[in-house]
Amino acid sequence: MPTETEKLRSARASERADAHVDAPDQDECDEIALPTHAAGSGALDRRVDTARDYARAAASDNTLKAYAKDWAHFARWCRMKGAEPLPPSPETISLYLADLASGFGVSPSQSAARPLSVSTIDRRLSGLAWNYAQRGFSLDRKNRHIATVLAGIKRKHARPPVQKEAILAEDIQAMVATLPFDLRGLRDRAMLLLGYAGGLRRSEIVSLDVHKDDTPGSGGWIEIFDKGALLTLSAKTGWREVEIGRGSQEQTCPVHALEQWLIFAKIDFGPVFVGTSRDGKRATETRLNDKHVARLIKRTVLDAGLRSELPEKERLALFSGHSLRAGLASSADVDERYIQKQLGHASAEMTRRYQRRRDRFRVNLTRAAGL
């Protein structure tokens, strides 16, 4: 029989869990405060605010939103099953993972739902681990209940990753050729060429500022030289530099396209890629959303007639923002380590996932071994 203290502790944990479900966007960083034994002062209070700012910067807004949804989904599942989300129970979490993989009882109506992919289940588990850490708990993903169930899910349901089509050199040339030379066309041309030559994520493209520290939400800045442009980007593991050299012709040179956009849009401060006025004659101060890059890629893919043998819906499904990164990795005929550095990958294996066409048997270990 649980003691009164254990019952009280469980009740408080349940209340805290429900509070976070009702308000999943509540900022966990606000819990950072001075220890109770420390005397407050103006200087220390300001340090608390600084610490909270750093804590908020530990993960991107999109990641935090995803983790909040993960926790809300898990807590709702617990209520449906009569379980408690706090404190963490490896046995309960293993049952939750099994339900995610099978699709049973995942929806609020407790009816059968579409089973989730292995990558999504992995992401959900990471979200739970992060949420538990914010609540002062530790989730051991190597616990036998969690690890064995997850291993079984991966063995039974794992499939090769679905890869987006790479946009190759001839493709990007055809895509930018469909764009007009008005202000919007100059902007979109610069975004496509810069994203392709830099192997950039769509979020990295739109987060660029003209200078360092122009805006609080900056994800990097640009410097333009005679031989090219240097982008300093805030990546997952820290800051990295991306060198983009000038092209062989102005029509497809990413640096020239960037210069043209900045000149005609009269942008010398703040976000590099912004919206335009309704008549398309003036640049606004509003930074573009990364979804604009995805829409731009899909629109120009259709206009350029890429994979025109397929129905429109299938053609659109083939391409995304990652198509630019895959295109650079697949088209650049240079040593693999340079591509790895440009894409900001920690391993060569990750870079190879982006290479849709390469000489896979250039190094023949069979013959090297004497066979």
Rank of each mutant, 00 (worst) to 15 (best):
T3N: 10
L8Q: 15
L8W: 08
R9W: 05
R12V: 13
R12I: 15
S14A: 15
H20D: 06
A23S: 12
E28W: 15
P35F: 12
T36P: 08
H37P: 00
H37Y: 10
A39S: 04
G40D: 12
S41A: 08
S41T: 15
L44E: 05
D45P: 02
D45G: 13
R46M: 11
R47C: 09
V48N: 09
D49M: 15
A51D: 06
Y54H: 11
A57T: 00
A59M: 14
S60D: 10
K65R: 13
A66T: 03
A68K: 01
K69Y: 12
A72T: 11
A72F: 02
A75L: 05
W77F: 00
R79W: 05
M80P: 00
K81A: 10
G82T: 14
E84N: 12
E84H: 13
P85T: 05
P88S: 06
I93H: 08
Y96G: 05
D99E: 12
A101Q: 01
S102A: 12
S102L: 01
F104E: 09
S107G: 10
P108A: 13
R114H: 01
S117N: 08
S119L: 05
I121M: 02
R124C: 13
W130M: 10
L139I: 09
K142Y: 04
N143V: 03
L150I: 07
A151Q: 04
G152P: 00
R155Q: 13
K156F: 06
K156G: 01
P161Y: 03
Q163M: 13
A166C: 03
I167Y: 10
E170R: 04
E170L: 06
D182H: 07
G185Q: 12
R187H: 03
R189E: 02
R189S: 06
G195R: 01
Y196A: 11
G198D: 02
L200W: 08
L200F: 07
L200V: 05
V206N: 01
K212D: 01
P216L: 07
P216C: 08
G217P: 01
E223T: 15
I224E: 06
L230S: 06
L231Y: 02
L231Q: 04
K236V: 07
T237A: 14
G238V: 13
G238N: 10
E243H: 12
Q249C: 07
C253E: 08
V255D: 04
V255C: 14
V255L: 12
H256N: 01
L258G: 01
Q260E: 15
W261M: 03
W261K: 04
I263P: 00
F264W: 05
F264A: 07
P271I: 06
P271Q: 14
T276R: 11
S277E: 11
D279K: 10
R282L: 13
R282A: 10
E285R: 15
T286I: 00
R287E: 10
D290T: 12
H292L: 07
V293T: 11
R299N: 15
L302Q: 14
D303P: 07
A304E: 07
E309W: 07
P311T: 08
K313D: 03
S320M: 06
S323G: 13
R325S: 03
A326M: 12
A329V: 06
A329M: 02
E336F: 01
Q342W: 02
H345P: 08
A346T: 11
A348N: 06
M350P: 04
R358S: 12
D359E: 09
D359Y: 02
N364V: 12
A369W: 15
L371M: 07
